[in-house]
Amino acid sequence: MKRGTVTVACGHRLTFTIKFSVFTLKEALAAVTDSSPPFTRLDICNRFLDSVRHSKVLGMQVLSAEEFSVRTVLPWREDLVGNPENGMMHGGAIFAMMDQAGGMAVTCRTFPNFEITPTIDFRLDHLRGPAKGASVICEASCYRLTNHVAFVKLTSWEEGNEEEPIATGLATYTRLKIDKAGKVVGQ
């Protein structure tokens, strides 16, 4: 950054002194970064997940978090099986992961603020059963955020087979206006 002063004479005995600063582009970008939160959407989603015991116990993880898209994964595990005859993961485990992913999708829209957002309703269609041993990936997107309600759509597929979804969901969440909700994620 360059600093300096320019003295401008405006007629007899009247002068102005103008201080100037010239930022380089790099400095300007650094200034913008400094004013944005010191954490990303992915950080907040991870802290959110860490605070939710059931989701941790399920073994789900966050893969990516952007304003309109969150991706999570639920690795296959023996104790999450619904049908012992074919080793297919239980619909309830997939539901629990998708419900959590939906909540995170809302978090990504309210970012950098964190809000408590209980589910109002959730509909899940099971298009096909996931194969034994397959991890399930979920993508959730909060496509509309109003003052009180968030609308989320979700799709899940077996890892490596994004073209053939195994489940689709539609959900609504309500935004609770609770002070200090952010402390859940360490804000």
Partner: peptide
């Protein structure tokens, strides 16, 4: 059971766990 907790501050049950429970009950 601690494993079905969702919101730790309230504490409240995880909606997904309740849903899984209900789905299994129906089956």
């Amino acid at each position: 059971n601690d494993n079905v907790i969702g919101n730790p501050t309230l504490p409240a049950l995880h909606g997904g766990a309740v849903a899984g429970f209900m789905e299994q009950a129906a089956i």
